[in-house]
């Protein structure tokens, strides 16, 4: 954690400038009509040029796009941490730890499947708080137990060593991955308290929304798939939408679950169009996209309430992630030959 005065003005100015240079709707329209090499060429003329040029000799086609996107994402988010000091750093790092979780999951899966270190390296998104040296060491280790030992001293050590026994018993990665997710979400709201007004209140509100949407998504997936899993194992504490017992009860009753979310004061109105779609259509993907769009819009609204605060940074992080996901969806969609309308349905555009 860094100490000293924080510099929200500086970070905000830079973030807003980068936010403005994200792809607009017309750009996506153009991309949808291109093939993978066309997309790569288009990206070369935008702010992705550095990554495309770096990786262009080693990869081609969709892989090139994919790795360039990951690297670009990592570069931008690393910049965020580099610029910020004090409280702002703390707030951003807290959220970006999500990429630490992602990286650790990738590494654990890689070790589990005996993938060679080189391949794991390319799949990492070096945007989190764990230093590059730690990640490099993690990639080289041979067993999951050694990997956990490398993490000694970080927040993830306790969580992972707790779940390791379960893993040894069952031989499945789920307990380890759950422990990582839980570690991330449960520390999101640490020592923030429950402020009722000011930028901090909005920050907390946003994080709660993130947790709530995650819970809602898990619950809906469980309810839809009818899988016989204990919902409590996936419940994340800290949101306002569900309590643990409510969630366990509602997973059995799909319609009631949807009603419960729709009746919530905080999200009901905002998600009303999404709910109409969920009730009509059979597709959960559509609803998940609607959730993402709602969260994005929510973050945008928060960032205009307090112009110089952490909200603008959060809204940028989300928007950037969406952009990367969208471009990836287009590239992958073109590769497998989806039609333009099918790809368009996969995109989340505000």
């Amino acid at each position: 954690m860094s100490t000293g005065a924080s510099n929200p003005e500086y970070v905000n100015a830079r973030v807003r400038s980068r936010r403005a240079s994200l792809f607009a709707e017309e750009d996506y329209r153009k991309l949808i009509r291109m093939g993978p090499s066309g997309i790569a060429r288009f990206m070369e003329e935008t702010e992705y040029d550095r990554e495309i040029n770096e990786l262009g000799t080693r990869f081609s086609g969709v892989d090139l796009i994919e790795y360039a996107l990951n690297r670009n994402l990592a570069r931008h988010f690393d910049d965020l941490l580099k610029w910020s000091d004090g409280t702002v750093y703390d707030r951003i790092a807290r959220y970006l730890r999500k990429f630490d979780v992602w990286n650790l999951k990738t590494i654990i899966r890689g070790i589990y499947t005996d993938t060679d270190p080189e391949t794991i390296q390319t799949d990492l998104i070096r945007a989190g708080e764990l230093p590059d040296s730690t990640l490099d060491r993690l990639v080289e280790v041979d067993s999951i137990e050694d990997a956990i030992d490398v993490l000694y001293g970080t927040d993830f050590y306790d969580a992972l060593s707790g779940a390791f026994e379960d893993y040894e018993e069952t031989g499945a990665l789920v307990p380890l991955e759950n422990a990582l997710d839980r570690e991330f979400y449960e520390h999101l709201l640490d020592d923030l308290g429950r402020p009722t007004e000011g930028p901090n209140a909005l920050y907390v509100e946003f994080l709660q929304a993130e947790i709530d949407f995650r819970n809602a998504r898990n619950a809906l997936r469980l309810a839809r798939s009818g899988a016989d899993l204990d919902p409590a194992a996936y419940y994340i504490d800290g949101g306002v939408l569900f309590t643990e017992s409510e969630l366990s009860r509602l997973v059995g009753e799909y319609d009631e679950l949807v009603d419960h979310i729709a009746e919530n004061k905080r999200y009901g109105d905002r998600l009303s169009t999404a709910f109409d779609r969920l009730r009509d259509a059979e597709s959960l993907i559509q609803f998940e996209h609607a959730l993402e769009a709602a969260l994005l819009e929510y973050a945008d609204r928060l960032s205009s309430i307090y112009p110089v605060s952490i909200s603008a940074v959060l809204s940028y992080i989300l928007a950037k992630e969406r952009e990367v996901e969208n471009i990836r969806a287009i590239a992958r969609g073109r590769e497998v030959g989806l039609t333009e309308t099918e790809i368009e349905e996969e995109l989340v555009i505000l």
Binding site: E9, Y10, N12, A13, S17, W83, V308
Partner: peptide, 14 residues
């Protein structure tokens, strides 16, 4: 102080 910090940020980007 605040405006200067923001201005330097903006200049760094553009």
């Amino acid at each position: 102080r605040g405006i200067g910090a923001a201005a330097v940020g903006a200049i760094a980007e553009d």
